[in-house]
Amino acid sequence: MTEEFRTSKPIYRQIADRIIQQFVRGKIAPGEKLPSVREMAIQSGVNPNTIQRTYGELERMDVVETRRGQGTFMTEQIDRKKQLRIEIQREMIETFIQNMRGIGVEDKEITEAVEQFLAGKEPSEND
């Protein structure tokens, strides 16, 4: 089935995010050729113009490189991959912290809860 998209972000950004995720997770290798615009549009069930924007955006971010007549390739720069990994981490942490604060957990409790979780313990009831 064609994938579903969230409403809060433009589709071209969501596809760009997905490609970055796959790159960081190692599902797409550095220097690997990405599907053509049309192929990617068919796979994702979206308008090819959307993929064009996705690839344009990724190129601006130095995540992909378009070689004339050959196609679009993932960057081979390992430093860029490391940076992307840090950026994704930051975004995940930000979402997590916002959610925790949203349910009224103090920052100190958040750190404790994370440590406990990593140590394999159940969250304690402080109140």
Partner: peptide
């Protein structure tokens, strides 16, 4: 939807689609 994306000549053909079922087609519409 996949057939539309595969076979429409984007940028050349003007396409108008009437529908009640918006979910699948939405990512194809401009």
């Amino acid at each position: 939807v996949k057939g539309l994306v595969s076979f429409i000549d984007f940028g050349e053909q003007t396409v108008i689609i009437t529908t009640h079922e918006i979910t699948e087609i939405e990512p194809v519409l401009e």
